[in-house]
Each structure stands twice: as structure tokens, then as C-alpha cells.
Nucleic acid binder design. Structure first.
Lengths: 247, 247
DNA sequence: TGACGGTTCTGGTCCGACCACATGACATGT
DNA sequence: ACATGTCATGTGGTCGGACCAGAACCGTCA
């Protein structure tokens, strides 16, 4: 094996700033809710320009660790928060669009994650969550529902189940993966010929899924979820899809 | 259910820039390998300042969609790439540190993902990957191996298996989740009293896991992987851990 | 007491300049 | 002719300063 020589690549200053802040987060010195000093103060303290600091803050913002508000008062300024969902969603969405992941990969990941979600949801879902899911399904059964709205409700149903699993991490991952294929699913739904039949069968499956969750039939719910997802993805594989990933 | 009114929050310009570029990626107009115009050209085209553009580019960079190189020549400038792993890893690592996810959540997610990884690896792993895994295990069996190195090799073993599953998405997710608890596992390993016995039993499990993968015993590999992970996490729950997540 | 308006603090944006680095073109010397 | 050194150029990276917009605070005035 030949030795790989790669350039030393000394860090850019905004990366150093990022590491500094990241280290304080990892060390527990910065917790959710904490406020950072104003940019104009923090920049000279760290010995960098405001621009470089801002770029580091922007990074933290995009991964859902920080939010910034202008103005004055207790809510103004930059605060540490925990909003991983949007960040993760955007990440996977873009990478799926770029072809980092094939449709088959997404299918298997969905099966894996949603099996787990449905299984856990069957034990953890609260009555309120069940009721909310019922409402979503009821709206999906409305005659003459538009494709876009159906897709939206469908997404929300799966995400809701994931959330009701009680596991924030798998919930986040499930939602992000589901969201990443949302445009693709929308296109597939738009191409459906027999719309009433398609929605009808999907609605039936959803109703049965929710019933199994409500009654705590964990394994059955997981199995049906897998069947549900595989069945629908099966209608996608003939369509346009990002090619298999290279480097 | 009362209606939630939240401020309109008109986008900041760098977000608009981001949406513009993101849209072109989602539309397939920007593909991996494509180069963006120089910042000094692109900024006026988009009608924004170079600073705002740079902040948008920084976002794309942090989610592993773009790399920038200064200098001159064909490799210089900003290029679209596909490097989701580091980005995802950092995201989960920070959020785990912030307590967005409890240790139990991570445990269940690991079980779910790694079951899938081992199961798929049992069918897809190439001889080269098996051999590489053998090497890792061999090095972990070295007498007097340091805690840090053991942890490193252990991480690489699990990540390697995930990669050899043939599914880039679950591989990425598995690696990221595994990496997010890496510091915690390191601390746990350092606190182990009977180090030789611990490594011995872990090594035995790893060897058996790899054997099952090599011989294509998918289900057995998945089951043992679950046992392996749960067993080790069991030793962690008494230790310090980020608290359960609030909003 | 209440309403109003100015002050102040915050992030957001923009501009212009310079730096560091890598390349490529050119000049120079052998 | 070739090798070598030097300079011009183009790229991202950094910096400082200025101004804008919005929100809260505070004092004044009715």
C-alpha cells in the first residue's frame, strides 16, 4: 500500500472559529439556550474579523445548533438551540438530488427506519397522536383531494408516526429520509393513471397501519409498513431517478 | 387545535441565494463536478454582495455539497461534490452533545441501523472488505492495545461493515450515529476495570460477527449485532449522559 | 397614566481593499 | 534547446468600516 500524500490544508480561520465553538459545545460549556456574545464583541475576542466569525456562525445555524435574531432584548442575539430536523432534511434532500444515494438505498433505509418507527409507535403513541393521525387519514380520504395535498398529508402521517415512536433520533432520520424522496414521490403520484384506485389502496393500508399501531400490534405494524413502503417504491423504480452514486 | 401564528420572517438574502442554488441542484441543472462561477462574478449576477453569496456557499460547503479551492487552474474555484458523511457526522455529534438525543435513542437507532447493515453486509461484503475487517480485528487483539486505539479500530470495524452493506445511505447514517457516541464510548472504555476481559469478550463477539458475515448468515449476524450493541450500551447507561431532550 | 418618539443594541448587508496561494506566461541564463 | 527563475493573473480568504432594519428600552410629554 503506497503512502498517500495529501496537502496539509491549513484551516481557514472560520474553521478555526468553528472548532473553537464546537469544542465548547462538545465540552458542555455551551448548552441549549445559552446566548453568544454579540458578533461585534466576540470577533475581536477570538481575534478574527466579524466576517469570518459570521461564516462560522452561519455554519452552526445551518446544522440547527444556533439561531440568530436581530433587535434588542432577551431574545435578541445568537442562541444555542436544538433544531436538527430541518438541517438533516436539507442535507439528505440535496444529496439525494445529487445522486449520492440511489433510490434502492433510500427504499431500504426507509424500510429499516420505518419498521423501527412503526414498531416503537405501537407501544408509545399517545391518544392525541393517534387522533391526529386519524385526522390526517380522514383528510386523505376526502374525495377529489389534490395530488400535492395527498402527498403532503401522506408525508405528515409517516413523520407523525415516526415522532410518536418516542425516539427523537430515529424520528429525525425517518423524517429526513422521507422528505428527501418527497419530490420524487410527488412526481410519481402525478403520473398515476387510476388516481382513485391508488389513493384507495393507500388509504386502506394507512388505516390498517394505524389500527395496528393503536392496538399495539408492533410486529404486524412493522411488517405492514415494510410492505406498504416496498409496494409504493415499486411503482417508482421505472421512473426517472438519480443514477447510482459515484464518488 | 389552536392556530400557530409565527412571524413572517422574510428571508435574509443569503437564504435567497441558497434557495436559488439549491433549486438548481434539485432541478438537476447543477451536478456533481460542476463548477460555479467565481464569487466576484456570481455575486453581481445574483444581485447580492459577495459577503452574502459567500455565506450561502459556506452553507453548501458545510452540508458537503460544495468544495472551494483558491488559486488558479482547472481545480480552482467552487465545485459541486458529494461528501455527505462528514457533514452528517458533525451534525449528529453536535446535537448529541447538546442533548437533542438521549443515549437510549442512540442505542435504538444503532440497533436498527446496524442490524440492517450487518444483514446486508452478509450478502454484499467483498473479499477485500472481509480481509480489511480481519486486519482490524487482528489489530484489536494485539496485547496491550491502548484504549484510544481500540476505540478507533472498533469504530472503523463497525463503519466498514456498514460501508460493505452496499447501501450508501444506511452506511452514512450508521457511521454518523456511531461517530456521535464515539467520545462517550471512549470515556466508558477508559473507565473499564478489567480491561483484558472486556476487550477479550468484545473481540470474541467481533470475530463471531465477522464469521457470520463472511458465511452469509444474515439473520444471525443481525441478531448478534443487536446483542453486541445492547450489551455494550448496557455498560454505558450508568455513566454520565446528556439528559433527555426538551425543545 | 398612557402614548409617543427617540435611543440603543442587535444582526444583516454591502463595499473596497488586501492577502495567500497556485498557475501560467514570459524572460533569462546556461 | 532546455532549464530556471520571475512576474502577472485569477481564485478564494480575510479584514475593516460603514450603513440598514428591526426590536426593545426609556424618557418625555400630554
Amino acid at each position: 500500500m503506497s503512502v498517500e500524500w495529501e496537502p496539509v490544508r491549513q484551516s481557514r480561520t472560520h474553521e478555526l472559529v468553528l472548532e473553537t465553538i464546537e469544542a465548547r459545545v462538545l465540552a458542555g460549556e455551551l448548552k441549549a439556550g445559552d446566548r453568544l456574545p454579540p458578533e461585534r464583541e466576540l470577533a475581536p475576542v477570538l481575534g478574527v474579523s466579524r466576517s469570518a466569525l459570521r461564516e462560522a456562525l452561519r455554519v452552526l445555524e445551518t446544522i440547527g445548533v444556533l439561531v440568530a435574531q436581530s433587535g434588542r432584548g432577551p431574545d435578541a442575539g445568537a442562541r444555542i438551540v436544538r433544531h436538527p430536523d430541518d438541517a438533516l432534511g436539507r442535507l439528505l434532500r440535496l444529496h439525494f438530488a445529487l445522486g449520492s444515494y440511489s433510490l434502492e438505498d433510500v427504499l431500504e433505509a426507509r424500510v429499516t427506519l420505518e419498521r423501527s418507527s412503526f414498531q416503537a409507535a405501537a407501544g408509545h403513541a399517545s391518544p392525541e397522536e393517534i387522533e391526529e393521525a386519524e385526522t390526517l387519514l380522514w383528510r386523505m380520504r376526502a374525495p377529489g383531494v389534490e395530488v400535492a395535498e395527498f402527498n403532503d398529508l401522506d408525508t405528515r402521517f409517516h413523520v407523525l408516526i415516526a415522532r410518536s415512536s418516542g425516539n427523537r433520533l430515529t424520528s429525525t432520520l425517518t423524517s429526513a429520509v422521507r422528505e428527501s424522496v418527497r419530490p420524487l414521490i410527488l412526481r410519481a403520484l402525478e403520473a398515476v393513471e387510476d388516481w382513485p384506485a391508488t389513493t384507495g389502496s393507500l388509504n386502506d393500508e394507512h388505516a390498517e397501519l394505524l389500527r395496528l399501531v393503536r392496538e399495539g400490534e408492533a410486529t404486524a405494524a412493522a411488517d405492514l409498513a415494510e410492505k406498504h413502503i416496498r409496494g409504493f417504491h415499486g411503482t417508482l423504480v421505472d421512473d426517472k431517478q438519480p443514477g447510482p452514486a459515484g464518488q
